[in-house]
């Protein structure tokens, strides 16, 4: 995954609260087992929203309502947003699993105070472009700064473009092995299937 590069683009305003992952990616498409090409299923049952998004020029930034991405853990929701070109989402709050999935796919999910977001939405609706600085956790729009937050560890990962999995193995392999040795002694019932290992 490449590291995050600051960019400037227009934003699409999706004011509704509690937009769940069933709305983003309807369950009947979960039978697809690939990650690529899922953008065509995003918001499939919300044609009016898709029309508005197309009329807005399909911008890569979403300004969303509270609890965006609540509900199901389906990472397909994030893959489909990525597939439709979304690179950053700002909202007062997010479904936690969805937010973690965003970080794992290079999408910025920035928390923004409701009042700040409302002002930014008005600017975006007026056609102003947004510049996103992840390191500084700031959106700049029409020379005004709009602060947002991404949890420290997610921000580090997004900026560096790390592979979480291989990085854990490289940096913490010994820590994990030490934990396991200790747990085998203190909670042996969790290791009975691997007694001879």
């Amino acid at each position: 995954m490449p590291g995050f590069i600051p960019f400037t683009a227009n934003a699409f305003v999706l004011e509704e609260d509690d937009v769940d992952t069933d709305i983003i990616f309807p369950a009947r498409f979960l039978l697809h087992t690939e990650r690529q090409g899922l953008g065509r299923f995003a918001f499939r049952d919300r044609p009016a929203l898709l029309d508005a998004y197309a009329r807005a020029g399909k911008p890569p930034i979403l300004l969303a309502g509270a609890n965006f991405g609540c509900g199901s853990s389906r990472e397909h929701a994030v893959w489909s947003l990525h597939g439709m070109g979304v690179a950053a989402i700002f909202a007062p709050s997010f479904g936690e699993i969805f937010r973690g999935n965003c970080a794992n796919n290079g999408i910025v999910a920035g928390g923004m105070a409701a009042g700040t977001l409302a002002r930014l939405q008005a600017m975006a609706n007026a056609g102003h472009a947004l510049s996103i600085d992840l390191a500084g956790q700031t959106v700049t729009c029409a020379a005004q700064a709009f602060p947002f937050t991404v949890p420290d560890s997610d921000r580090e990962m997004l900026l560096a473009g790390w592979n979480t999995t291989t990085r854990i193995l490289a940096l913490h392999g010994k820590d994990i092995a030490a934990f396991e040795t200790s747990q085998r002694a203190t909670a042996p019932w969790l290791w009975t299937e691997e007694a001879d290992a």
Binding site: S73, E75, I97, G100, N101, S153, T165, L169, H172, E180
Partner: peptide, 20 residues
Amino acid sequence: FGIGASECGTVMATQTLWQA
């Protein structure tokens, strides 16, 4: 707790997850 598909891969490979 519930996790995403990428995290399922991380768990299988490392038996760990970074969590807040």
